[in-house]
């Protein structure tokens, strides 16, 4: 486990200024504060740990580079990072479109945990894996909107800002995304015998 961020009283804008002025600790605080969220989004978008880590590293790299030109109060660091990461994911998904398109819900990964675990943990893991597989059946934009709204728990206006679309368009994507997920999960429940 990584150490928790203990500098909650310093806002991101101030940390960006400190980083640009050479404060090494600022980078550490920003990294520990945001990497987990960026990694989670990338993992849900891409479904691949190594690729998700590459995206997270690249998104943070872009954050470091923009620090001297960061405009305080214009955009939240988290929003900016989500936008960069989601665009990087979209680029990767386009490159692998042919390969990814052939993957379907039958390729749901089996639980990897070899250690003994209580039944609840196994069920939760099955559900998480099932959702991940179902997410991958959605078109990229629906997947992005659903991940940001329901898994990253962002408000619709922030999702709209990240995706650079209107709130109405976000609502439309979410509606279609939820419908698609429900269908995919229902099919999976029948196949895998998941208790929903």
């Amino acid at each position: 486990m990584m150490p928790l961020d203990t500098n909650d009283d310093i806002n991101d804008d101030a940390l960006m200024v400190l980083f640009a002025n050479g404060d090494g600790q600022a980078a550490s605080v920003l990294a520990y504060r945001h990497t987990g969220r960026v990694l989670a989004l990338a993992l849900r978008m891409l479904g691949d740990q190594a690729e998700a880590e590459d995206v997270a590293q690249e998104a943070l790299m872009r954050l470091w580079k923009i620090a001297p030109d960061w405009r305080q109060g214009e955009a939240k660091v988290s929003t900016w990072l989500y936008r960069v990461a989601s665009n990087l994911c979209t680029d990767r998904l386009r490159k692998h479109a042919g390969k990814r398109a052939t993957e379907d819900i039958d390729n749901v990964p089996e639980p990897k945990d070899d250690t003994p675990s209580i039944e609840a943990d196994l069920i939760a893991r099955d559900r998480a894996d099932a959702l991940q597989a179902a997410l991958r059946t959605l078109p990229t934009r629906q997947r992005k909107a659903v991940s940001l709204r329901f898994l990253q728990e962002l408000a619709n206006p922030e999702v709209a800002e990240i995706m650079e679309i209107s709130v109405e368009a976000v609502e439309s994507l979410l509606s279609r995304g939820k419908r698609g997920l429900a269908q995919a999960l229902e099919a999976q429940r029948m196949e895998l015998g998941l208790d929903t």
Partner: peptide, 15 residues
Amino acid sequence: LDMFFDAAKAQEPVP
């Protein structure tokens, strides 16, 4: 869907 979302959030990846 909520139970799937909750399960996924509980499996949040740690860097």
